[in-house]
């Protein structure tokens, strides 16, 4: 089935395509790569930004932010639940707080690049009730163009996360906490 269709589709695409047109070059566009811009935008889409002076303040910062989190998981400190790529779904589903290192922050939209290598398990960033992303403030760029320019590759899986999971599917009323994390904090150091 598929082989014949493959040939047919490729042949039809070749026969029906227009004369070749040039691929445009995408300029950098510059923009504002500041903590302030990043913070304003992320706050505007339901996220929170917290500053700390150095990475070693992380656990204390999280303790203040999530005093009630019991099941925590992180590659940055010893959480209560160790997670790796083989962790069963039942255990993942009980996690209250995942604390993961982000790689790049995007000031124009509040997104943070989170590669598979930083996730412990691919499902962890969405199945956890709350998500904290830890980001070096020097890794904030202005736009998506600059973010992609800095990515060496996208690995097996990776994503930009911009704020908490949300929906407006009922009457366009914004509800935070659809299926993924109910809250998102970016901890900048």
């Amino acid at each position: 089935m598929s082989t014949a269709s493959r040939e047919r589709i490729l042949a039809a695409a070749k026969a029906n395509k227009p004369e070749e047109l040039p691929l445009p070059t995408v300029p950098d566009f510059g923009g504002e790569a500041t903590i302030e811009r990043f913070t304003t935008v992320l706050t505007g889409i339901g996220g929170t930004v917290v500053r700390m002076a150095a990475l070693d303040e992380l656990e204390e910062t999280l303790q203040q932010l999530f005093p009630e989190a019991r099941n925590t998981s992180s590659p940055l400190f010893r959480g209560t639940v160790p997670v790796n790529s083989q962790t069963p779904t039942g255990i993942l589903a009980e996690i209250d707080l995942a604390v993961l290192p982000g790689e790049i922050g995007v000031a124009e939209n509040g997104a943070v690049w989170l590669p598979e290598a930083n996730m412990l398990h691919r499902a962890l960033p969405t199945i956890t009730q709350h998500l904290a992303l830890v980001l070096d403030h020097r890794r904030i760029v202005a736009t998506m163009h600059q973010a992609y320019a800095q990515l060496p590759h996208t690995g097996g899986y990776g994503k930009f996360v911009a704020g908490p999971s949300k929906t407006a599917d009922i009457e366009q009323s914004l509800v935070i906490g659809a299926h993924g994390a109910r809250s998102l904090v970016v901890v900048l150091y």
């Binding site: 691919r122 996208t154 690995g155 899986y157 994503k159 911009a162």
Partner: peptide, 13 residues
């Protein structure tokens, strides 16, 4: 400004 998740699926786990 962007969707909450922009997910790149490249290889199976």
């Amino acid at each position: 400004p962007v969707t909450t998740y922009t997910s790149h699926f490249t290889k199976p786990a």
